[in-house]
């Protein structure tokens, strides 16, 4: 374990030192090192997903054929699905197929799992993207305005609402939005997939928690930065107020803010299961849930795996982004 990690740091550092000046070399070393740490995690996620489905009690074949079956069919099916092989063989096959983009076939529809996922995934991404927009607009603006006049009524009020937004269950927020804007006011459709109108309520539902959190973090960081020396210098130089706020105060809150946005991507993927099941949104969250209820194991495996891979990739990219935003960050 130590040896590969040591190598992952030293070897690229050595090679890169020939080609680049020091700061860029440091950054590239960091990127390579982070990438090399990313690979074992990907492997681990794949393996854990395999194990999870392997330890499932009950025979998937029996749940496929139903109540009435004859032994020959069951044996045949088991052989077709390679379920008669020992665990390491199945693991090897699983891994090999995965490397070739083959996640198996659904037990229910017999359609390739990957096709179904590729079909559903963009819809979840659309939802998550819209939620992210809601969260950034709402969270950042409320957080910034609150921080400009701390302890004002606006600040107190919005922070209480933000606390509520963090604590309220996603699914409940969704149902209340449906009740108010879908059923009572009839402003937006309460479920389904289609144009922009269909996106509004699910996006707000999914974005609520993270905008509330973002508002709190933005406010706290803005206030923290306010007391820094460079802020006093900026004021002393006689810069206009908005320049100080935007160029000096806000820019320095970006690191925690981007961390939150990145970390929240995972909560979007989790929240997507709840949101999609409320709004009948045909994304990957609902696919996961449906396939669990139908005990469609290849499909469960596929959705969990793909979602986890997207999640760790996003976290990985966020980590890399830090360096671009804040060159002071040490890559060692």
């Amino acid at each position: 374990m130590i040896l590969p990690v040591a190598f992952s740091v030293l070897v690229p550092k050595f090679i890169l030192s020939f080609f680049f000046p020091k700061p860029i070399e440091q950054m590239l070393t960091y990127i390579v090192k982070r990438t090399l740490l990313f690979i074992p995690v990907v492997w681990g996620v794949i393996t854990l997903t395999f194990i999870l489905m392997f330890v499932v009690p009950g025979d998937p074949v029996l749940s496929m054929v139903g109540e009435r079956y004859d032994e020959a069919t069951v044996e045949q099916l088991r052989e077709d699905l390679h379920l008669d092989e020992p665990m390491y063989m199945q693991y090897g096959r699983f891994f090999w197929n995965l490397m070739h983009g083959d996640l198996g076939h659904s037990y229910i529809t017999n359609r390739p799992v990957l096709d179904t996922i590729l079909d559903k995934f963009p819809k979840t991404m659309l939802l998550a993207g819209a939620a992210m927009v809601v969260s950034i607009i709402l969270g950042l603006s409320v957080g910034i305005v609150s921080s400009l006049k701390p302890y004002s009524w606006f600040d107190k009020g919005s922070m209480v609402i933000a606390l509520g937004g963090i604590s309220a269950p996603v699914f409940w927020v969704g149902l209340m939005l449906v009740l108010i804007f879908g059923i009572q006011l009839r402003w937006f459709p309460s479920s389904g997939y289609g144009g922009l109108a269909f996106l509004v309520l699910p996006a707000i539902t999914l974005g609520t928690r993270s905008s509330a959190f973002l508002a709190r973090v933005t406010r706290a960081t803005m206030l923290e930065v306010k007391s820094k020396d460079f802020m006093r210098t900026a004021k002393a130089k006689g810069l206009p107020k908005w320049v100080i706020i935007v160029k000096h105060q806000f820019v320095n809150t970006l690191i925690p803010v981007i961390t939150i946005i990145g970390v929240d991507f995972g909560s979007y993927l989790s929240g997507a299961v709840l949101t999609e099941s409320i709004f009948g949104w045909p994304g990957i969250g609902r696919l996961a849930l449906d396939s669990i209820l139908k005990r469609d194991f290849p499909m469960i495996q596929g959705t969990v795996l793909v979602t986890a891979l997207v999640f760790i990739t996003v976290n990985f990219l966020v980590d890399l982004l830090y360096g671009v935003i804040d060159p002071r960050i040490k890559y060692e």
Partner: peptide, 14 residues
Amino acid sequence: GFPALLFLIGIMAA
């Protein structure tokens, strides 16, 4: 690496 709720759902499915 697993989004928490999805991981939980996977376990509950098993």
